[in-house]
């Protein structure tokens, strides 16, 4: 932890949920992507006076670490997908059902981000997939350093698929590049058709929008074409897939889309 800026994310917890005797060797942190250096910010000592140019992007540190993650994932042919949405859109339900449909044809593992509890990780574990829970404490989003730590714990096999369920929040996660292959925004029909316009930042970074809970369309005042149009108003041409985790409608198209994903962002 750096004494100057207090960085070090002391209250973030990263935990691999135990799931088999064959992985009892304990985590080998050296196998993960480079993480945040614990100390050693370059402090300069020559006298500085007047105006000093800085010209640094504010997310430079995160973007740098995201670059490490991206390279680490690409070297191993691992596809990491970042799922973002407001709380309760159905991310964990979607993952549980997706894992059931994909296994055993493809190794899948999950990194769960929540402020507190292991509830979502336990739900994933019951599907049999390896899972790491990251609790961000006060943090409202995952960042690239947290993903690096999660990957070091998870140790996903080469060529596998890693789903990252971000903290349920339609604002903050949008700004933090994790080094993922693609960003998937999930929106459920019960949230209303104006969500993309109210939270444009999130939808503007989406590589794919999943519209979940279409089984509930008869009960809500939402026109699917309008919701799709709103997505494309802030992210022109974005791919949109309507689905229902409950009935399974649209799951096949989603699984087909997963097959087309490359480890490196297009």
């Amino acid at each position: 932890m750096c004494g100057t800026c207090g960085c070090g994310e002391a209250d973030v917890r990263v935990e691999l949920l135990a799931f088999g005797p064959d992985r009892s060797g304990g985590p080998d942190r050296s196998r993960g992507p480079d993480q945040e250096e614990p100390a050693g910010h370059g402090h300069r000592h020559e006298p500085l006076t007047g105006v000093v140019d800085i010209e640094t992007a504010l997310l430079a540190k995160n973007d740098h670490l995201a670059g490490h993650n991206r390279a680490w994932l690409a070297e191993r042919g691992i596809v990491a997908l970042n799922l973002m949405s407001s709380p309760g859109s159905g991310k964990t339900s979607l993952l549980a059902r997706t894992i059931a449909e994909l296994t055993p044809s493809r190794p899948v593992s999950v990194i769960e981000g929540d402020q507190e509890t292991r509830i979502d990780a336990e739900r994933i574990r019951s599907t049999g997939a390896p899972v790491v829970q990251i609790n961000t404490g006060a943090g409202c989003h995952l960042d690239a350093d947290m993903l690096a730590r999660g990957l070091a714990e998870l140790r996903p096999p080469d060529g596998s698929l890693v789903f990252v369920e971000n903290v349920g929040n339609l604002v903050c996660p949008a700004l933090f590049d994790l080094g993922e292959a693609a960003r998937i925004v999930v929106v459920s029909v019960t949230e209303g058709e104006d969500k993309p316009l109210k939270y444009p930042q999130m939808f503007s970074v989406a590589d794919l929008v999943l519209i979940n809970k279409v089984d509930l369309l008869p009960y809500v005042d939402v026109q699917l074409p309008r919701l799709v149009a709103h997505c494309r108003a802030v992210r022109p041409g974005v791919r949109v897939l309507p689905l229902s985790v409950t009935t399974g409608e649209g799951m096949a198209a989603w699984c087909d889309w997963l097959l087309t994903c490359d480890p490196v962002r297009r």
Binding site: T4, C5, G42, H43, V52, I54, T56, L58
Partner: peptide
């Protein structure tokens, strides 16, 4: 926090 990091890294 990124502001503080970016500045102290330089100054």
């Amino acid at each position: 926090q990124g502001v503080v990091d970016a500045v102290t890294e330089r100054t």
